[in-house]
Each structure stands twice: as structure tokens, then as C-alpha cells.
Simulated scan of single mutants.
Amino acid sequence: MSTDAPNSLGTYLRDRRTRLDPATFGLSGSRRRTPGLRREEVASRANISPTWYTWLEQGRGGAPSADVLDRIAKGLMLTEPEREHIYMLGLGRLPEARYQPVDGITPRLQRVLDGMVLSPAIIKTAMWDVVGWNRAAAVLLTDYSKLPREGRNILRLMFGSDHVRARNADFDSIARFVVGAFRADVARAGASTSAEVIKLVMELSRLSPEFEALWQDN
């Protein structure tokens, strides 16, 4: 087990456990000598042996597996940064990236975009769905507010529109770059084999023989 200090993983797990309110999980808070959940309650929520969980808090039993850490993260209701932290403490590395769909952006981030009055700016997901844009982008690029949600995808717009092709003199080079960048983005997000990516790739391949050839060309 990789640690920054003696039993740092156990110390962190114990701290997270004592911060949880038993009432949140329908458990009685009376007759408890210490705050938070008991070890066996966390073990039950994580679907692991109470003995194994106790050993982890005590710094015994060796390094946990990634699956065990994921179960504990779920049992302790850890945030994604907290999950990454227990991976660093327990395994000395970050967890493998896993894809998390994004539906929109925060009002604070939208204000940042709106503050860029003279610069067209958009925010896209790993799937290349545009989820945020400013007025300059709507004027010079595309007014995404007039498109249905599924239509706010850069790849669908690029490979499904003759108008977009006509606006780009070197379309072939741009298309190759875009497909390569899309492949890198979904790989970085841990989404290469996700159902969402597979569905989008199949749709684009039916829509555009050029996309299909570039995707298969890898």
C-alpha cells in the first residue's frame, strides 16, 4: 500500500466515515459512542467484509484492489476528487478515467463566456456536444440556441451539412484533424467503449462515408 504517512489511507477513511450522518441512511443515531457510521455499516454499504474494511482502516492486509476502493468510495458517498484521493493513498495512482455525461454548464461559467464580448467561445464535451456559448459565437459560428439539443454537436454539423463544408476550403484536412481530436478526447475521458460514443460513431458513419473512412483509418 502506497502511503504519504503511516496508514494515511486508514486515517482518511476513518475521517470520512465519522463525518457521515447515520440518519441519512435510515440508521439510528442513538447509543453511538463515536460520531458517524460504524465500520460494519460502511462495509455493508460497500459490500465488502467488515474484517477487511477494519484492516484497511488499521493499515493491515496489504493494498486494496481498485474494485474495493470503488466500492468504499460509493459506500462513503465520496466525491470524485475524494475517490481520486483514496486511489492515490491506496494504490499510488489515479483511477482510470470514466466517462460522465455533461448536460450543461454552471451560471458562473456562462458569465465567464459572456464576459468575452469580442471573442467567439464555446464549451464542448468529450462527445463534442456544445453545452455553452457566448453571443459572439452565436453570431460568427452557429446560433446553438436555435438548434435542438441533439443538433448541438460539432461532428453532426460538420459531417451532415453541405453548408459547413462549403465554408471550409480545406475541408479534408480539417475533417481528419477533427476526427483525430475527437478520438483523443473520448479516450482521455474514458469513453471510447461507452454506449454513447458507439452510437454516435455509428450514426456519423451512416451519415458520412468520409467520417467512416477517417474513423476506420485510425
Rank of each mutant, 00 (worst) to 15 (best):
E80Y: 03
Q110M: 11
V102M: 14
E84M: 12
R33I: 08
M88Q: 15
T51C: 01
T125D: 09
V117L: 07
L69R: 01
A137F: 09
P101D: 11
R31P: 02
E82I: 03
R167H: 12
A66R: 07
P35L: 06
R176L: 14
S49G: 11
G190D: 08
S30N: 12
R152W: 04
D143K: 11
R111P: 03
P64Y: 04
M127R: 13
D143P: 13
E150P: 01
G75V: 01
D114K: 06
A46K: 00
G90C: 10
A181H: 12
R152Y: 03
A5L: 12
A23P: 02
V102Y: 05
A46Q: 00
A195H: 06
E84I: 06
R98P: 05
D67H: 01
R39M: 00
R111W: 10
G29R: 14
D129M: 09
A97H: 10
D170R: 13
L91Y: 11
D67A: 14
S192N: 03
E210M: 15
D4A: 13
S145F: 01
Y144I: 01
A23Y: 03
G190Y: 04
T79L: 02
D170C: 06
R38Q: 04
R71I: 00
R165A: 14
P120V: 06
E210K: 12
P107L: 15
E80N: 02
P209A: 05
A169I: 07
E196L: 04
G92P: 09
D70Q: 12
A181Y: 11
D114L: 08
G132M: 11
I123K: 03
D4G: 12
S208T: 11
G180N: 15
Y12P: 03
R183G: 06
W55Y: 07
A187V: 14
I122E: 05
R108K: 09
G160W: 01
A121T: 12
D143S: 08
K199G: 12
I72W: 03
